[in-house]
Computed example of a mutant assay.
Amino acid sequence: MKNNSLFKTATLGNHTLKNRIVLPPLTRQRSTQPGNIANELMAEYYQQRAGAGLIVTEGTQIEPRGQGYAWTPGIHTAEQIAGWRKVTEAVHAREGVIFAQLWHVGRVSHTSLQPENAAPVSASAIATERVSVFIETEPGAGALVKPSAPRALTTREVEELVQLYIQAARNAMEAGFDGIELHCANGYMVNQFISAHSNNREDQYGGSLHNRLRFLREVVAGVAECIGKEKVGARFAPLFSSTDEERTYLGMVEDDPHTTYIEAIKVLEVVGIAYLSIAEADWDNAPRMPESFRRAVRSSFSGAIIYAGRYTAQSATQLLDSGLADLVAFGRTFMANPDLPARIANDWPLNPLNSATVYGGNAEGYTDYSVYGG
């Protein structure tokens, strides 16, 4: 497969990517405690996967209130910035390109993870359902629990939160990242403003879709002005379903997902950011993304488009050849195969994923997966 579409170069902002294979953001919970600091083990993990055309880090919280799971890294302290610098230097040593995913979980959190055990913050005081967060119960051990009820941010606090995103982007540049990805998916903070299911505000950030997109507009414009639009990407996770169970998955299946997300994508297009990443539903029997939506995405956004969602080398190649995507991300397979691009290129067999070691722990199931022939 060395000559297929996956191995053509691609332009992303100011970068020419060596292939179209992406390591997407994957929560692994290996940061150093206390302090949620990226470390040498994480640097090794990302360096092992520097054969990707693009690496996007696991979500890294932009402020203390942005954390919803124990042991996830942050990017808001000097120690965290220094820790991430170890990662970026390791990836750059292998000529990789790496973006930091900036993350704020909003209401998907627990008081034990919040400063002074306060309530999580969100667009509105509406609790999320059918989702769990992970808290530490003792050093190195934890449990899944129900999120705590959130409180609504004041208008002034929303404006301050926009500035925290901008500062996090600035921190990422200080840490040596090539760019940042805004996590606007999976029911987290930006998504909580966009969705009518989680936003019942009566100020300029709520009500109409235009108003619910205001927070997104301000964050995207702010970080682009700060670090350069060519260094900015954003991720959405549109869900297309009408069943009650799927509608309440993180509370974020819109009544009209096509209109909601195409309008959100147009916000990105106005600013002119480098890329849009679309995370497709990837659980068993998940609703399929309509072809009409993919075509609308392509016609609405002129930057690079990334899709992620249980792709194989064959299905990824078909998507690239259709012209509807520029890059394709491989999550679970890249966890288990640090040399995934080489394995795809040479049609080598793949390591199976050890699902028991995905979240938390040490090198086992993280940096000890074999490379082919090694």
Score class of each variant (00 low, 15 high):
225 E>I: 03
208 S>D: 02
36 N>K: 13
232 V>C: 06
168 A>G: 10
110 H>T: 01
131 V>Y: 08
216 L>A: 07
50 A>Y: 10
360 G>F: 08
61 Q>G: 14
188 Y>K: 03
112 S>G: 08
241 S>K: 01
328 V>C: 00
100 A>D: 02
192 Q>D: 01
337 N>V: 03
60 T>S: 10
173 M>I: 15
205 Y>I: 11
180 I>K: 04
100 A>W: 09
57 T>I: 04
355 S>F: 15
355 S>M: 13
277 S>N: 12
138 E>N: 05
339 D>A: 00
280 E>P: 00
312 T>K: 03
121 V>Q: 01
115 P>T: 05
72 T>F: 08
188 Y>P: 07
218 E>Q: 06
357 T>N: 05
116 E>A: 00
142 G>M: 11
346 N>P: 00
165 Y>W: 15
51 G>T: 10
99 F>Y: 15
147 P>M: 03
119 A>L: 04
246 E>H: 14
69 Y>Q: 03
83 G>Y: 06
352 P>Y: 08
226 C>T: 09
330 F>H: 00
251 G>T: 07
7 F>S: 00
74 G>K: 09
77 T>I: 08
362 N>W: 04
106 G>S: 12
156 R>M: 05
333 T>M: 06
358 V>S: 00
157 E>V: 13
159 E>W: 06
344 I>K: 05
78 A>S: 07
228 G>I: 11
82 A>E: 14
74 G>Q: 11
291 E>M: 11
360 G>S: 12
130 R>G: 05
181 E>S: 04
349 P>S: 01
205 Y>A: 02
153 L>N: 10
330 F>G: 12
302 S>Y: 07
179 G>V: 09
346 N>Y: 09
314 Q>A: 11
167 Q>G: 11
256 D>L: 10
230 E>Q: 05
210 H>E: 11
152 A>T: 13
331 G>K: 12
331 G>T: 05
238 P>A: 11
144 L>T: 12
27 T>Q: 02
340 L>P: 00
281 A>Q: 09
245 E>W: 13
343 R>A: 08
235 R>L: 03
31 S>E: 06
150 P>L: 04
56 V>I: 15
91 V>M: 08
92 H>I: 02
177 F>H: 14
229 K>M: 05
168 A>Q: 06
146 K>P: 09
80 Q>I: 03
279 A>K: 04
92 H>M: 01
71 W>Y: 15
309 G>S: 11
185 A>L: 04
256 D>R: 01
138 E>K: 14
137 T>P: 05
278 I>R: 02
273 I>Y: 06
294 R>F: 11
28 R>N: 09
